[in-house]
Structure formats: C-alpha cells, structure tokens
Amino acid sequence: MEITVGAFVAAGLAALFVLAMQVSNITAFQRADGYNVYAYFQNVGGLRERAPVNLGGVQIGRVEAITLDAARFEARVTLNIDRQFNDLPSDTAASIRTSGLLGEQYVSLEPGGMPDSLAEGDEITLTRSALVLEDIVGQFLYNQSAGGED
C-alpha cells in the first residue's frame, strides 16, 4: 500500500512536471540573462506584455512591459532581448506586426548599419506603430469618396 501511494504521489507530481515543462512555456521564467531596451510607439494596438520580439522571424526576446510615457504621450515598450544577441546595431528599427490576419501582435526588429550596438537601457528611435485596421479602412473609404467626386 505504501508503494502504491508513493507511486500515486509520484505520478501526480510527474504530471505537474510535464505540464510545466511540456505544456506551458516555463522557459519564460529564465529571462534573467537578457538586457532591456526601450522603444516608443504612438500606438501599440493590441500588443501585450510577454509578446515575442522577432528579428528575421526568429524570436530573440519578449515584451517586458508596456507603459504610457506621460510627457511624450506615447507608449513606452520595454523589450527584453536575449543576452546572446548583444550585437544589434544601435539604429535597429522596431515595428509592431501581426502574425497572420487575426494572429497575435509582436515586435519585429530590422537591423540597421551602425557599428556600435544596443546596450541595456538604450532607446530604439526608429519605430513604426501598429497598423490599426479601422484607420486603414477609414483612410481607404475617405480616398475612395474623394476620388469619386472628381
């Protein structure tokens, strides 16, 4: 009986372990070895904290925090980038993209050509905000109606 109870408890703990390692992204815990850079966006759209930061389609970090800069009235996005990618050019550009038509939003980085690299606490100055679908549709309709009157 002791053995079966022990096996039962072990099975339960093993299930929790598998759920932690295989089902959930517990690796997100191990983000201590990264550095933070900041990017200001006029509009972050539906970007969430912990969204991926990609370069060339490969994930190199995560969105650490999104706050509003009260002085600039812009969203201040903290990007936590993996320590192994510590050689990004300082004029790297950041833009908010959507994976697929309805997928989640992520930050895409495009490397520039400057020789010096981004370090902890730096700001990414070249940014492109999220595309807001309503704005695009509104602009399209406006252009259409303006063109129709000619």
């Binding site: 929790l16 759920l19 932690a20 295989q22 089902v23 959930s24 992204n25 517990i26 997100a28 815990f29 912990r50 991926p52």
Partner: peptide, 19 residues
C-alpha cells in the same frame, strides 16, 4: 500542436492557477 500550446499556455497563469 505542442509548439503553439507552449507558446500560449503560461505556467503561472494557467497551470499554477489550475493547481
């Protein structure tokens, strides 16, 4: 199946709260 699950399921928010 597994990779999307790992990307979307959070240990603290989902597994730990369930526990």
């Amino acid at each position: 199946f597994w990779s999307q699950m790992q990307a979307q399921v959070s240990f603290v928010d989902d597994v730990l709260n369930g526990l």
